[in-house]
Design a protein around this nucleic acid. Structure first.
Lengths: 345, 345
DNA sequence: TGCGGCATTGAAAGCGCTTCCAATCTGCGC
DNA sequence: GCGCAGATTGGAAGCGCTTTCAATGCCGCA
């Protein structure tokens, strides 16, 4: 610790081999005798040597850095759970795999969204990109990135994106279907659906599943009222009163995520309604907020952290060449979570 | 775009100057004639040249990378808001200042916490560290980092840490005092306080302020019941019943953060209590959850995103040598937010 | 015994940038 | 008109690592 950090040459000198041999050992290269490998490893330990990632990527042309891109409205509070959990999962996978994660939060309204993302690649900082919704479905962006030789993996991509890049997600359509069927079994015949932003293709599939369930049970379009929010608590509180005021009001409000459901809940409380007696409410995601509100929210659990982790694993698999075939989609399990904003099912 | 990315030499060639001159222009160095500077900038634009950060940091010895270190329990959900908001603020400041942020989430229980953080420095990846509580007050960690020549800025550091490193935060003691005085004015005479983890020194100061307010109003230690949680919703729900069951139960529960207050609220609901009639509750932070629970939480607003942003600004100021004097603490304003878990004040 | 061929090692050449230092060019005072 | 300090420029030397590619050493087989 005489001031300078040890370099690969120090290790080479101490172990009596050439620099290049040390490099081979460090990178698990072939053709090194076990004895030599051991000797080098000992020197590494003795000197407490750490490779310099900057030098490595300059020489090797690989930055071992992944970009994590998500969308966030600069004015609003962080829509914390979903993105935070994805990020946490991704972060953990990166640590395990020896990669760095560069977090990039792109404002919804930025006119130069795409440019800012591509800059990540052009700066040669990121070898791969993790795209969160709605970027997952920005085909133009995906294609441009791919054209520049950047690998991409998406969280919850829609059908088109899945043909281009790797992805992870749950079966949103089935989840929407299952949930709705359970609600029908509970006796509900008049539904309200609070959808999210259209650009989030995977969230839209929840609506598809919802519709299919209604159709399967002989319930027509007149059985439901559909409104569109933006995944925020506020949009839930805003949309709920007008649905409740409908001439033929729904007995249950199905929301495309938990935040909007929490908003709906607050709006129902504000009217002094009994939940689930007067109006039942369901969410989606099973974020912490679902357990925090009163009464706790019936929702669909989605393994968000795992989604982030798997996305990184998929991406790194591509990067290292471990996976060579066409784009694959990894589907994880969802689960209905019945709490107290609906009757028990 | 003939395959290869342009390098500084391409720019030099196109603008007819030496490589080193381009470097000077790029780094805003002195002693370059305006005419030359313009010529170089034009070449940069024409080639769409971007510096290679890896090469720059290898040559210059500066990675322009900051480490953002926070604590998170791997099993629990991300305690999303506080950390996520800090991170968002830090991220934005980094973009503005041309730095990268490397997010590092260190599990609470990791035996090798400190080693993992120091590794960030030893890997020569980070020039500076942003420490979130409770790392802000880990003096041993701070000193070791400083000894290795790494600049450090802390979010909400306690008094000792403030003598060593830059920091940002609100006046937690005053906030606790103000809040408690308001509660006393409302007529409360019997208090419950749900504290957070002791290691979070700044959160402990809220308790100090609380105590001072009681003392100032002639209320002795028998006026309050104190329990310690861990900032989670669950700890709020766990601690509340036993406080409510006290022989001389409090009329208000003061919680060291919003999550625990939300937990207390849920526990109170579970007993069918009227809020704030039977029991008043207050939080701290003004996280989104404070507005989402029912009834919305009376709390103390703290500009969390701004805290993250300022921490980065402070750190970069040090790094660039813009600030040379002793450690400074930047105190931001807090504000009481009266909602509906207390009577109006 | 001799030779092709593979396993093992090392020397050299950069990756793209910055820093150090020497070279050249100004301007100004006398 | 001369000399010197300061302003501008460029040359060269790396930063610490990986990637050719050439040089050994070794084995088995004829």
């Amino acid at each position: 610790m005489n001031g300078k950090k040890p370099t690969i040459d120090d290790v080479a000198r101490l172990s009596g081999v050439a620099r290049v041999t040390v490099s081979r050992v460090l990178n698990g290269g072939p053709n090194v005798r076990p004895a030599v490998r051991t000797k080098v490893m000992e020197a590494v330990k003795a000197l407490d040597y750490k490779v310099n990632p900057q030098a490595r990527s300059l020489a090797g042309g690989a930055s071992r850095t992944l970009g994590f891109v998500f969308n966030s409205d600069p004015e609003s509070e962080p829509n914390s759970y979903y993105e935070a959990a994805l990020e946490l999962g991704a972060l953990r996978a990166c640590v395990t795999l020896g990669y760095q994660l560069l977090i990039h939060q792109i404002p919804l309204d930025a006119p130069d969204q795409q440019r800012r993302i591509l800059e990540l690649i052009d700066d040669q900082r990121c070898e791969g990109l993790i795209l969160c919704p709605p970027f997952s479905d920005d085909l133009a962006l995906v294609e441009t990135a791919l054209a520049r030789g950047c690998k991409v993996a998406a969280v919850s991509p829609g059908p088109s994106a899945r043909t281009l890049i790797d992805g992870v997600g749950v079966d949103d359509e089935a989840a929407g279907y299952d949930l709705t069927c359970a609600l029908i079994r509970l006796g509900h015949r008049r539904f309200g659906f609070i959808a999210g932003l259209e650009a989030h293709l995977s969230a839209e599939r929840r609506l598809d599943g919802f519709r299919r369930a209604l159709a399967d049970h002989g319930l027509g379009d007149d059985a439901c009222l559909i409104r569109r929010g933006d995944f925020t608590f506020r949009s839930g509180t805003r949309l709920t009163p007008e649905m409740l005021d409908d001439a033929n009001p729904p007995s249950v409000l199905v929301c495309a995520n938990d935040d909007m459901a929490a908003g709906a809940l607050a709006a129902a409380h504000a009217r002094g309604l009994d939940i689930p007696g007067d109006i039942a409410i369901t969410g989606f995601d099973d974020a912490p907020v679902a357990s925090i509100v009163w009464p706790p929210l019936t929702t669909v659990h989605q393994p968000v952290k795992l989604l982030g982790q798997r996305a990184v694993e998929l991406l790194v698999g591509r990067l290292t060449g471990a996976v060579m075939d066409g784009p694959q989609f990894q589907q994880l399990d969802h689960a209905l979570v019945c709490r107290q904003t609906t009757k028990a099912f």
